[in-house]
Design a protein around this nucleic acid. Structure first.
Length: 216
DNA sequence: CAGCGGATATTCT
DNA sequence: GAATATCCGCTGA
């Protein structure tokens, strides 16, 4: 039989470790988003690690800016960025304060509040697509800039929490190149820091990085 | 299914 | 000006 998921919140110490240890350990954990419209819970199935100033793919690679400020702060906080002029993506800050590493939450399975998630994801053709992709995940959970810097490790009525859930066993964790990152998948300088749960239908398809062409 | 154009914030050049 | 941790709707096989 399957044990029920552990609803205990993950402590800050969970996130205060090297990001490459935290990222695979996040698979199977449960994100709980509390909104005025109701709660939504999501089981994480796909993540990507970004390792601070040493990582050319990281927002923190070229130093601290207004956008990436939260990455340099304490672990267990939510980093939200806006990209391509349209979409929000959500990360969890890892490692000690100042390290500026974080895990991008790329996909998951909605396990509670699917009715509410569907109202935010009208283009989803089925429930497996509700959070299949980082911007879709943020949209389904109602994540926007107002959550940037939020502490996901405090008790009480917080907008975002991370529960222990049922971690994906290590032999079910797969990893490969990060999606959509320049310099990966083509030039030999690959950081295989995308982690996902094997054979899970909510994992997003891999897309190699393709530079956008300038519009005429 | 693959391919591509549009949306247009943020950062760097 | 150009690239980017993306997604959607359209076109054509």
């Amino acid at each position: 039989m399957i044990a029920s998921p552990d609803r205990t919140p993950l402590p800050r110490e969970f996130f205060d470790r090297p990001v490459l240890d935290v990222a695979p350990d996040l698979l199977g954990r449960i994100l709980v988003r509390t909104t005025p419209d109701g709660p939504i819970a999501l089981r994480l199935t796909e993540v990507e690690a970004y390792d601070g100033a040493d990582d050319p793919g990281s927002h923190a690679y070229r130093g601290r800016t207004a956008r990436n400020d939260v990455m340099f702060g304490p672990p267990g906080h939510v980093y939200v960025y806006f990209t391509y002029g349209m979409w929000f993506c959500m990360n969890l800050v890892c490692g000690p304060e100042g390290k500026a590493s974080a895990v991008l939450l790329r996909a998951g399975e909605i396990i509670e509040g699917a009715e509410l998630a569907r109202t935010r994801r009208l283009s989803a053709r089925n429930d497996k697509e509700l959070a299949k992709g980082p911007a879709r995940l943020a949209t389904a959970l109602g994540v926007d800039r107002s959550l940037n810097g939020t502490d996901a490790c405090t008790s009480g009525d917080t907008p975002m929490k991370v529960l222990a859930g049922t971690p994906v066993p290590r032999d079910q964790v797969r990893n490969g190149p990060r999606t959509g990152v320049a310099g990966e998948g083509g030039n030999g300088d690959i950081h295989p820091w995308r982690f996902w749960s094997a054979n899970d239908p909510t994992v997003s398809p891999y897309r190699a990085h393709v530079p956008r062409r300038r519009r005429s």
